[in-house]
Design a protein around this nucleic acid. Structure first.
Length: 259
DNA sequence: ATGGTGGGGATCCCA
């Protein structure tokens, strides 16, 4: 089962590029971030035509996540638990059944800039809620994939120019520590498990020729529970999509599981 | 130190 994550930066602007990538990469399941669309305005037809079931947790203008899945989506849950009144649409999960059942979670972690400030406080609080949800998922002892835009650069080797990110919410020590706290619960960073070393990026800013100069960062991650990590066959970043027509500023990342 | 680009929706916010 091929499970992917893709921050598309606006579903309306990215419909053609997303469909082209779906046709080429043929993932079984995709978690999407930054759809920037309300549920009712989400254009499900092009994906249903391609055989995907669609579950949306949308928000007008900002944020918004969704799951596309060829297997039926079971037990869909929307919103990250732990804060009543948080109306930002950043979390969706569902069970997909292939050879094995996999709990698939799609997340769009807050950017957090400028730091310090209320947006950074929100980021760290959201990561604490994520850690609690992740621990609860681990207790189920089933294959779990938490994929998405984590907006955290884990290590200096995950940025082409780490010094430029020194003061940024994506790379501050507290952000990296909060991500490590989740990993240390027992999750596997799938890309790292398969590819050591520098040069694996998922995001290149639209500005200042970042793609042309390969000035990227690795902030989109696929975290696997031990039961999912046991099934891991491959993890790759489809960086060529960043060179396409009207691209997102993120590239898709995907795992192949023996499931 | 600054400005560089893009999406969405409204004359500015977010990344």
């Amino acid at each position: 089962m091929k499970i992917a994550s893709f921050n598309i930066n606006g579903i309306k602007a990215r419909e053609a590029a997303l469909c082209d990538w779906l046709d080429a990469a043929a993932p079984d399941v995709v978690v999407l971030q930054e759809i920037k669309s309300a549920d009712a305005a989400f254009p499900a037809e092009p994906f249903e035509t391609r055989g995907y079931n669609v579950a949306v947790h949308g928000q007008k203008g900002f944020n918004g996540v969704a799951i596309l899945s060829k297997p039926p989506l079971e037990d869909v849950a929307r919103g990250l638990p732990g804060a009543d009144g948080d109306d930002q649409a950043r979390w969706i999960e569902a069970t997909v059944v292939g050879a094995r059942a996999v709990r698939v979670c799609g997340l769009y972690l807050p950017n957090g800039n400028p730091a310090p400030g209320p947006k950074y406080d929100y980021k760290l609080a959201w990561m604490d809620r994520l850690r609690r949800r992740a621990a609860a998922l681990l207790a189920g002892e089933e294959p779990v994939v938490m994929g998405g835009d984590y907006n955290v650069i884990p290590q200096p080797e995950d940025a082409a120019s780490p010094q430029k990110w020194r003061e940024d919410a994506l790379f501050l020590p507290e952000s990296r520590a909060a991500l490590r706290r989740i990993l240390h619960l027992g999750f596997t960073d799938a890309l790292r498990a398969r590819h050591a070393g520098a040069g694996h990026y998922t995001f290149w800013d639209y500005q200042a020729g970042a793609w042309r100069r390969n000035d990227g960062i690795r902030i989109d991650h696929m975290l696997l529970s031990p039961q999912a990590a046991d099934l891991l066959e491959d993890c790759r970043i489809d960086s060529e999509t960043r060179a396409g027509e009207k691209p997102s500023d993120h590239a898709p990342i995907h795992v192949t599981l023996d499931a």
